[in-house]
Amino acid sequence: MEEYNIMMKIFKLKRERIFCAEYEKLTQNNEIEFSTNKIAVIYGPNGTGKTSLSSILEKAANSEFDIEFNNIRYTNNGEPFAHIIHDQNGRNIIEGSTEDFILGDNIKKEYQLKEQLDKGFRNLYDSLINVLKVRFGITTKNSVFLSLLDDDKLKDYISDLANNKQKGNNIDKEDFLNYFNEKNALDVSSYDDEKFYFFVDNKKDKTSYLNALRQLKKDTFCKEEQYIKIEQTNDAISILKKYQNIHNCIVCDNDINQEALLAKKIKRK
């Protein structure tokens, strides 16, 4: 479809003594060209008649006009040629949305796209907030998990999402997308959900077991010298149970009291 610009030709403008006689028979410099977006910008210093022109088009008292717009002739004897927006309140009586009236097609599409993007991000944020809350128990920006993150930007994103007042509204959308687009998806090995929730749940005593572990001081732990013997005892018990009918050691061949030795190992464990 071929695009073309809309032309408005002015043949006559008259309003009291504002416009001189030459404006009653205009034949040159009397055209206003509208772009394909149906917009024309008129500029002129103060006192050149911009307001008076709009008043004539609105059929002000003691005014006349003869205009051709988009190949249709209009005069002050017919219906009002234009709706003039004098102030913010003047927009409220326009039929349809304000964008339809005062904006071009491309700008209108930009408004629609922005609405769709805002709605999409809102749905994404709500989904992430739910995952953080249900899956990881993160319901506030002071969650213990945040203190364990080394990535400050990720920490800020989670903090803003967990904040009940912000809910992601402070996040820069473009930076947010670029940040995660640069990340590589990693496979997470399977784990026991019950144990995981035991680890992160903080509803019962207001502190997660993760937080409890973090509060433990490393210097209070000491090396358990008998740990290796516990492992050896377990191996011995397993062997004695496996060879219950043998009464000599399968390593050194010495005679043993299998039942007494097994009872001794179990008691030691």
Rank of each mutant, 00 (worst) to 15 (best):
2 E>I: 06
3 E>P: 01
6 I>T: 14
8 M>A: 05
21 A>T: 04
23 Y>K: 02
26 L>W: 03
30 N>G: 03
34 F>T: 01
35 S>T: 15
35 S>W: 03
38 K>T: 02
40 A>Q: 07
41 V>C: 07
44 G>N: 09
46 N>L: 03
47 G>K: 09
55 S>D: 14
58 E>Y: 08
63 S>R: 08
64 E>K: 15
70 N>H: 10
73 R>W: 02
74 Y>F: 15
79 E>V: 09
81 F>I: 06
86 H>R: 14
88 Q>E: 13
95 E>R: 12
97 S>E: 12
104 G>F: 05
106 N>T: 14
107 I>H: 10
108 K>G: 01
109 K>D: 10
109 K>P: 00
114 K>Y: 08
115 E>P: 00
117 L>A: 07
123 N>A: 11
123 N>L: 14
126 D>P: 00
130 N>P: 01
138 I>R: 00
149 L>F: 15
151 D>F: 11
157 Y>L: 04
161 L>K: 01
167 K>M: 13
167 K>P: 01
175 D>E: 15
175 D>R: 10
180 F>L: 07
183 K>W: 04
189 S>E: 14
194 E>L: 12
198 F>H: 09
202 N>A: 11
202 N>K: 15
204 K>F: 05
207 T>H: 05
210 L>D: 00
210 L>V: 02
212 A>T: 10
212 A>S: 10
213 L>E: 05
219 D>G: 02
220 T>S: 06
220 T>Y: 09
221 F>K: 12
222 C>H: 08
223 K>F: 07
226 Q>T: 10
228 I>G: 01
229 K>E: 15
233 T>I: 14
235 D>K: 15
236 A>N: 10
240 L>F: 06
246 I>D: 03
246 I>L: 12
251 V>L: 13
251 V>A: 08
254 N>Y: 06
255 D>R: 09
